[in-house]
């Protein structure tokens, strides 16, 4: 019984506590960089697209709102021919970011993306791709992956030996 009264008192005391509410959109909160808002595609430190079109983001996406198609440049580097996110379906869960092996897809603190026309919620690659590295500044997937691409042949990736000379007789 006393605890009930105490609850009443404790709640009543809040009459004199300032409200935590931030009056969006007049006031805006400083959001953390890891906040899960609008999705972007980033570039690697060399300015190339990070996305390798592996489809892992698409398959992990709970509402299946990511669709893309892999293609290759003339040197064998994979990149998406198109990359589409239907934000009218997106639940901003961030699983795509977790699944991304190249840090290409990242969620940003920008979350207010309302539109009067639902069709405008469909973002294509040119809407998603930014000119920076996002949260991870130094990572470059192709410097580590042993795949030969333009400007990097076999054996030039990190932690790789030069290609084996198959025709040598040395042990």
């Amino acid at each position: 019984m006393l605890s009930q009264l105490r609850s009443l008192w404790e709640v009543l005391k809040h009459t004199f506590v300032k409200a935590d509410t931030i009056e969006y959109p007049e006031q805006r909160r400083e959001l953390f960089p890891r906040y899960r808002g609008r999705i972007i595609l980033t570039r690697d430190p060399d300015g190339e697209e990070r996305c390798v079109a592996c489809n892992l983001c698409a398959v992990v996406c709970p509402p299946d709102c990511i669709a893309l198609q892999k293609t290759e440049d003339e040197n064998g580097r994979w990149y998406p021919e198109f990359f589409r996110i239907n934000f009218s379906r997106c639940i901003l869960c961030g699983l795509c970011e977790e699944a991304c092996p190249t840090h290409a897809i990242q969620l940003t603190p920008d979350f207010d993306m309302g539109e009067y026309d639902r069709q405008n919620m469909v973002y294509e690659k040119q809407h998603l791709l930014i000119d920076g590295t996002g949260k991870y500044h130094d990572y470059n997937f192709y410097r580590i992956a042993g795949m030969a691409i333009g400007g990097k042949t076999k054996g030039q990736a990190e932690n790789e030996k030069p290609p084996v000379d198959v025709k040598t007789l040395l042990p």
Partner: peptide, 8 residues
């Protein structure tokens, strides 16, 4: 209720 729950 908002007042007691520190809202507006």
């Amino acid at each position: 209720l908002a007042l007691w729950q520190d809202r507006l």
